[in-house]
Design a protein around this nucleic acid. Structure first.
Lengths: 141, 141
DNA sequence: CTGCATCCGTCACGATACTG
DNA sequence: CAGTATCGTGACGGATGCAG
């Protein structure tokens, strides 16, 4: 369970540099897994969805277009295990389960949402660039 | 090539809300692809690596632990097509190719790096939480 | 050195059916 | 309603060989 990783530290050692405990550039570092859960196809959308409060399983399922029950449950569990999502199950029938962000979940969701916002705003430019890029491939060959 | 997507707009319409052109929550929106390239296993590390300047193919390969030639080339091309990475090939032998961030690449790399930094710092807490979570599963069953 | 092409194993993912 | 179990497919990703 050790996560000690040697990292190169320059003379100009910043604050986050001193606090950094993982190293994404080292292959077997657990930070890779964490990033994977958070930045996965459905992980991103779950985190963003939960930013506006508590939601039930079926609400999330409806909100997130194209997600299957299996993947939603799986992704939610991964985020719960990492401590980003809190799950509360009320022992009633029919079942009632609520999902919300933990404190650290809110923090990381903020960063993820910033990335998502940037992308959604820039979709047109990127698509244009993609078209030009592929056009250049045609002409160049 | 149309990317028009209807999005719900509340009365409190923010700035990014008005500029938003894509919708990650709609299944077939191209924003999903963009996010995928950027937040992919190797895309993240490439963007972060290029933040400190221009690098050659083999430099990136060495720096990013565990990446294969194939995936590095593939990921770089995806990022180039989307306009985040600029590729300059010098017509010499042996070949010499340099990769760097475009302006929009720098912007998105900043956001990705913020996410990565946050994760690397929190690796220990998350690992602890994971252990406790799995322990609870044992005891609860 | 920097790729591209090919083969091939793995596993992520979706569809479906079933349980509490 | 909120999952779990099972199965089948396809995409992802690694290894190797080759070209410019």
């Amino acid at each position: 369970m050790s996560v000690n990783v040697t990292i190169p530290v320059s003379e100009a050692e910043t604050l986050t540099e001193r606090l950094r405990r993982g190293n994404l550039f080292a292959g077997p570092c657990p930070s890779r897994d964490i990033l994977k859960n958070v930045s996965s196809r459905w992980g991103v959308l779950i985190l963003i969805s939960l930013r506006d409060g508590t939601h039930r399983f079926s609400e999330l399922r409806r909100r997130i277009g194209g997600v299957s029950e299996k993947m939603l449950a799986q992704s939610l569990q991964a985020l719960e295990a990492d401590g980003f999502v809190q799950r509360i199950a009320y022992p009633v029938v029919p079942p009632h389960v609520e999902y919300s962000l933990t404190t650290s979940g809110e923090e990381i969701a903020r960063l993820v949402a910033a990335l998502a916002d940037w992308i959604e705003v820039r979709v047109p430019e990127v698509m244009t660039h993609r078209a030009e890029f592929e056009e250049r491939l045609q002409g160049g060959e």
